[in-house]
Amino acid sequence: MKVIFLKDVKGKGKKGEIKNVADGYANNFLFKQGLAIEATPANLKAL
């Protein structure tokens, strides 16, 4: 799943980066902690 990092995550990505991560990691950690959002066309356009 492509995500947009909202904050720096050690070993994974920096704020503003768009990266592919495992679905479970994105859903269970990044999204719940507010560290990233899904890289949907609408979210990409908002950058």
Score class of each variant (00 low, 15 high):
Gly16Glu: 08
Ala46Glu: 15
Ile4Leu: 06
Lys32Thr: 09
Asn20Phe: 15
Leu30Pro: 00
Phe29Leu: 11
Lys2Gln: 01
Val3His: 00
Lys32Trp: 05
Thr40Pro: 07
Leu35Phe: 03
Gly16Met: 13
Lys10Arg: 13
Leu6Ser: 05
Ala36Thr: 00
Phe31Trp: 05
Ala26Phe: 15
Phe5Leu: 08
Lys7Met: 11
Leu35Ile: 05
Ala36Phe: 00
Gly11Glu: 14
Lys15Asp: 02
Leu44Ile: 14
Gly34Phe: 02
Lys45Ala: 13
Lys32Ser: 08
Asn20Asp: 12
Asp8Ala: 08
Leu30His: 01
Leu6Lys: 06
Gly16Phe: 08
Gly24Trp: 11
Lys32Ala: 11
Leu44Asn: 07
Val9Thr: 14
Val9Gln: 03
Leu47Phe: 15
Lys12Ser: 14
Phe5Tyr: 05
Glu17Asp: 08
Gly11Leu: 02
Tyr25Gln: 08
Val9Trp: 02
Gly11Ser: 09
Leu30Lys: 01
Leu30Ile: 02
Ala22Met: 08
Leu30Ala: 02
Gly11Gln: 08
Leu35Lys: 06
Ala46Asp: 14
Ile18Ser: 05
Gly11His: 04
Leu30Asp: 01
Lys14Ile: 03
Lys15Thr: 07
Lys7Ser: 13
Gly24Leu: 07
Leu6Asn: 05
Leu44Tyr: 14
Lys12Glu: 12
Val21Cys: 10
Lys32Asp: 14
Lys45His: 12
Pro41Thr: 14
Gly34Asp: 12
Val9Gly: 02
Val21Ala: 07
Ile4Gln: 04
Lys32Gln: 15
Phe29Cys: 12
Val21Asn: 05
Leu30Tyr: 02
Ala36Leu: 00
Lys14Arg: 12
Val9Asn: 06
Asp23Glu: 15
Ile18Gln: 03
Ala42Asn: 07
Asp23Arg: 11
Met1Leu: 01
Gly34Pro: 01
Val21Met: 04
Lys32Gly: 10
Ala46His: 01
Asp23Tyr: 02
Tyr25Val: 13
Leu6Trp: 02
Phe31Gly: 03
Gly34Cys: 14
Ile4Tyr: 05
Asp8Cys: 11
Asn27Cys: 12
Val3Cys: 06
Lys19Phe: 11
Asn43Tyr: 11
Met1Ala: 02
Tyr25Thr: 07
Gly24Gln: 15
Phe29Pro: 04
Lys14Gly: 09
Lys19Arg: 12
Asn20Ser: 11
Ala42Cys: 11
Val3Ser: 03
Ile4Ser: 02
Ile18Lys: 01
Leu30Glu: 00
Lys45Phe: 02
Asp23Pro: 10
Phe5Asn: 01
Lys45Glu: 14
Ala42Asp: 11
Val3Leu: 05
Gly13Ala: 09
Asn28Leu: 08
Val21Gln: 04
Val3Gln: 00
Ala42Pro: 11
Lys10Ala: 14
Ala26Leu: 05
Lys32Met: 09
Lys15Asn: 09
Lys12Gly: 12
Lys10Ile: 15
Lys19His: 00
Leu35Trp: 11
Asp8Glu: 11
Val3Met: 01
Asn28Ile: 03
Lys7Gln: 12
Ile18Val: 14
Gly13Arg: 01
Lys45Gly: 11
Gly16Ile: 00
Ala26Met: 05
Leu47Gln: 12
Phe5Arg: 00
Ala36Met: 01
Leu6Glu: 04
Tyr25Ile: 04
Lys12Asn: 13
Asn20Thr: 07
Ala46Leu: 12
Asn43Thr: 08
Phe31Lys: 05
Lys15Leu: 07
Phe5Gly: 00
Phe31Ala: 05
Lys7Asp: 10
Pro41Ile: 14
Ala22Lys: 10
Met1Val: 06
Lys19Ala: 14
Gly13Met: 04
Lys45Val: 08
Lys2Pro: 00
Leu44Arg: 07
Gly16Asn: 10
Lys12Asp: 14
Asp23Met: 08
Lys15Met: 05
Ala36Lys: 01
Asn20Gly: 11
Phe5Ile: 01
Ala26Ser: 06
Thr40Phe: 04
Ala42Gln: 07
Leu35Met: 09
Lys19Asp: 04
Lys2Thr: 05
Leu44Asp: 10
Asn28Ala: 10
Lys7Thr: 12
Asn43Gln: 05
Pro41Tyr: 13
Lys10Asp: 15
Val9His: 01
Val21Arg: 01
Asn27Ser: 13
Asn27Arg: 15
Glu17Arg: 01
Thr40Asn: 13
Lys12His: 09
Val3Glu: 01
Val3Thr: 00
Lys2Phe: 04
Asn27Val: 12
Phe31Glu: 00
Lys2Leu: 06
Phe5Gln: 01
Asn20Lys: 13
Gly24Tyr: 08
Phe31Asp: 05
Val21Ser: 02
Lys2Trp: 05
Gly24Glu: 11
Lys19Ile: 11
Gly13Trp: 11
